[in-house]
């Protein structure tokens, strides 16, 4: 009888220890999962805020183009003769002005022109598309692309055209 009681107690004690070990393992697993989840949230938050900052930087650069005397006739109105100066070999100056590496395409939307006519030294002013820092557009893979409607002053024709500015920043 005593033998069976002591054996029963011993077994109960062993089950108890097993229960506690299992409980401890579960607690530790939950804790570790919690830590991973928290650090994961932190990482997501940081990535989100970095992306938000990068978009804000791109918007700033795009707005600098539409407000700087380097590109505009007056505030918010791009000057085509000034844009023409940035079409070839001006990446360094452009980067210095807008504060980052980017490729910009400005297209005048002419009812008469059905196709893009890229501006170069030979065909200005009979053209409707200016690409600044084309090498950035062609050399890099992924881009964050923003577009903005703009007014383009055609200095030779003395008229204002409606256009689209496309800002491509390497992501």
């Amino acid at each position: 009888m005593i033998y069976w009681i002591s054996k029963g107690l011993k077994l109960k004690g062993q089950f108890g220890i097993m229960e506690y070990i299992l409980l401890s393992v579960f607690l530790i697993v939950i804790l570790i999962l919690g830590i991973f989840m928290l650090s994961g949230f932190e990482q997501l938050k940081t990535r989100g805020s970095d992306s938000k900052e990068s978009v804000a930087g791109n918007i700033l650069s795009m707005n600098i183009i539409t407000h700087s005397d380097l590109f505009t006739k007056k505030d918010g109105q791009l000057d085509d003769s000034k844009l023409q100066g940035f079409v070839e070999n001006s990446c360094e100056d452009f980067e210095k002005t807008v504060g980052q590496q980017a490729c910009v395409e400005i297209e005048a939307l002419l009812p008469s022109a059905r196709e893009d006519n890229n501006c170069n030294a030979g065909n200005y002013p009979e053209c409707n598309k200016w690409t600044i820092c084309e090498e950035v557009c062609t050399s890099r893979g992924g881009f964050r692309i923003l577009t903005l409607p703009v007014n383009i002053y055609r200095s030779i024709q003395d008229r204002v055209d409606l256009g689209i500015l496309t800002f491509k920043a390497p992501s």
């Binding site: 005397d69 380097l70 003769s81 000034k82 023409q84 100066g85 940035f86 001006s90 100056d93 210095k96 002005t97 030294a121 200005y124 002013p125 200095s155 030779i156």
Partner: peptide
């Protein structure tokens, strides 16, 4: 002076471009 320097460089190029265009009989 840094911003003005870039502006002047581009304006000189622009003056050349406009002179070239205005010398075309069409304009």
């Amino acid at each position: 002076f840094s911003q003005l320097s870039v502006f002047l460089k581009k304006e000189i190029e622009r003056m050349d471009l406009l002179r070239k265009v205005y010398s075309n009989p069409q304009y």
